[in-house]
Each structure stands twice: as structure tokens, then as C-alpha cells.
Design a protein around this nucleic acid. Sequence first.
DNA 1: TCAAAATAGTGATGTAGATCACATTCGCTC
DNA 2: GAGCGAATGTGATCTACATCACTATTTTGA
Lengths: 187, 187
Amino acid sequence: MNEASFQHHLEKYISLTEQEFDFIRTYFTHKKLKRSEYLIQSDQLVNHTYWVKSGLLVSGFTDSKGKEHIIQFAIENCWITDQQAFYNRSKATFNILCLEDSEVLCLSYQKREKLCADVYKMNTFFRKKANDSFVKQQRRLLTYMTSEAKERYNLLMQEYPGLVQRVPKKILAAYMGVTRETLSRFR
Amino acid sequence: MNEASFQHHLEKYISLTEQEFDFIRTYFTHKKLKRSEYLIQSDQLVNHTYWVKSGLLVSGFTDSKGKEHIIQFAIENCWITDQQAFYNRSKATFNILCLEDSEVLCLSYQKREKLCADVYKMNTFFRKKANDSFVKQQRRLLTYMTSEAKERYNLLMQEYPGLVQRVPKKILAAYMGVTRETLSRFR
DNA sequence: TCAAAATAGTGATGTAGATCACATTCGCTC
DNA sequence: GAGCGAATGTGATCTACATCACTATTTTGA
């Protein structure tokens, strides 16, 4: 199977020969999911992290007051899992749901640690990737601190153009931290 | 100089012999700062990340409306820098200010990359540390999404007990994303 | 050591967005 | 392609917190 886009993704941070890539690829398994299937459900043990080859997924949860919150959208080339649960070998807080038919590459915790030990470059890849994810998430935190809802909406539109078309409005609203009524009034 | 607490900190994720630690230590320099000195000022190039040996620092910035926001408190055993600027070799958005006399260990970008290349365990250390930082910051984002100000105040008190005594109220308020008037009314 | 500045508390009023209630339209399933 | 539940839009009202205005206290530095 041709997974040039995955190799491209890795090469954003490290450079690889074909042989190295093929070897790395053996640590991953492949999975297809249908729209409205769950990749992870809350309270399950989380043993994998996923790289999205195609499709669209969201991670989210329902808080103690019954309100839904969206943590992350994942489109092509994104990684997704419940990180807290994955790194701490514990149970998921979040649900991860397919909004469209999707294909993902799966990497177990054990394989990931082994991959980092076996292939030095991949240790570096995950380190750099983690640093970038931190910065990206920090930017999102900043928008929560500095912007009002209307501005956050515009920022989301900039970051993922076309997402509005693909995602139910109530999920967009839950990502932005407003009610669907408020979001509706922005449009 | 005895830096047992730094070795302890590293050993949260990796195990080291005395020799290994001493070698790693040579990549860092030492710096003392006085209260109200800046470690980083916005618009400066950021070439170092810092591990706090003692004292108390905050990173923050002033937004386009002139409102101040606090990103992070750093006490003993915390790392602090403007990560966006540090990883992207660019200029700081944040100021990092000493609220108390402080001592830090300094690691330049070049030395950090070299350290990761020279000492495999340190590549792993920074990878794991970055993953944990991501999760910790995600928890903070969640409190912004799910809790009201009063609850966020209680959560901050839990995470850093005693901080209220050490930090001006307007800085606490800016960390929590409320005005100092609102914070004052919680107490 | 003393004046100026920064910090902190509190009341009155304004406002973004939540909540509730209901109408309309869209998209499945049989 | 009829029928039913989910998704969406919109008005009326409510509320947490911001903003403004003023006073009291503490810190600082000349």
C-alpha cells in the first residue's frame, strides 16, 4: 500500500530513506472506520495513538453539567488519541468519534516506545511533534483568554477552512465554547 | 555545586548514573536573577529554555486591548521559556518576569539539540516531558471550557497551594482570566 | 522618611452570551 | 416518498462577569 503522505508527514521533522520508512511502517497497523463509529470511548483503556490518513474525527466529552465540549478535530495528517489516558496507561475521559468514513494508522504504546528505542530519528520525531502540539494548543488557550466568541469563530474558519461545511453546527459550537444558539446568531 | 534536585527532576523520566548526570550538567549554564528582573522580554530572540532551581517567575503578555494575561507560573523544578519563539527560532511574544529572586539553569537551543543527539536518554526525557506538558496544559484549557471563574480559582489553589500569598492578586486574576475586581469578590 | 505609585476592596451599572421556548427544515429509515 | 427525530434559526429573558468610579492601604525609591 502506498503511504507517501505518511512518509511526507514524518519528513516534516526528520529525513528518511525508503528502507527506514518501510521499517518504521511495520510498527503500525491499519484501520478503517465508518461514519459515526467510535475510535475511543470514555472509560476504555487507551492503548493506541492514531494518525489520520483520511476522513474526519473529533474528540470530546460531556461535563458534569451535561454540556458537551470538543477538544480536537482531526483531519488528514493529524494525530489523535486521548493523550492523558494514553501516556498514563489509564482510562479515557474523551470519546473519539468519526464524523466521516475514515482510515487511520494505529500505534500501540509498547510499539511506540520500542520504535523510539529502535529508531533514534523517531524519538526525535515524537519529541519535536510534541513540542509543536504544545505550542499549537497554547495558541488555542490564548484565544480562549483573549478573544470573544465571534473572533474565535473567525479564527477557527481560518485554521480549518471548509470545516463549517463538514461538521454539524452544534459540534462547532462545542469546540468554540459557546451554545449552538449563540453560534447561529454569528452567521 | 550540588544540584541534586535537578538530577531528581531528570530521574522522574529517566535513570542516570552520577557520571551521566555530571556530563549532562555541562550543557547548562547558571544564572541568578533579582526580583522584578526580566528573564525574557517580548520581541527579543529566544535562544534558551530555563529550568527553575529556586524562586518564582511568570510568563505573560499584554493583548491588543491592553489587557494582561498570564500564561504560566514557574516555581522550583519547572521549565520555562517562550516555547513558540524558542522552537521556531523567533522573537518572543511573552515577557518572563521574576516575582522573587530566582536561580535558573539555562540551556540554549543548539546545546539542547546537541544534548539530545549525544545522550539518547535526554532525547527521551524531553519527549516525555513535552507529552506531560501537553496534557497539563490541556487540563488548563478544559478548566477554561468547563468551569466558571470561581471554580478555576479553587483549582489554582489546589495546584499551587501557597501561591496566593506569594503573588499579587492582579497577576492571579490575569492567570485565571478575570479582572482583579472579580477575583477580589471571591475572597 | 515621606511622597508617589502600585495594590486592593467595594458599590453601581452595562453587556456578551446562556437559557428557555418554539418554529422550521433537513436527512434518514421503513 | 411518507413520517419522525435531529439539526437549525430566532425571539424573550436571565446572569456572570466586565467596566467604571471611588476609597483605603501597602510598597517603593529618592
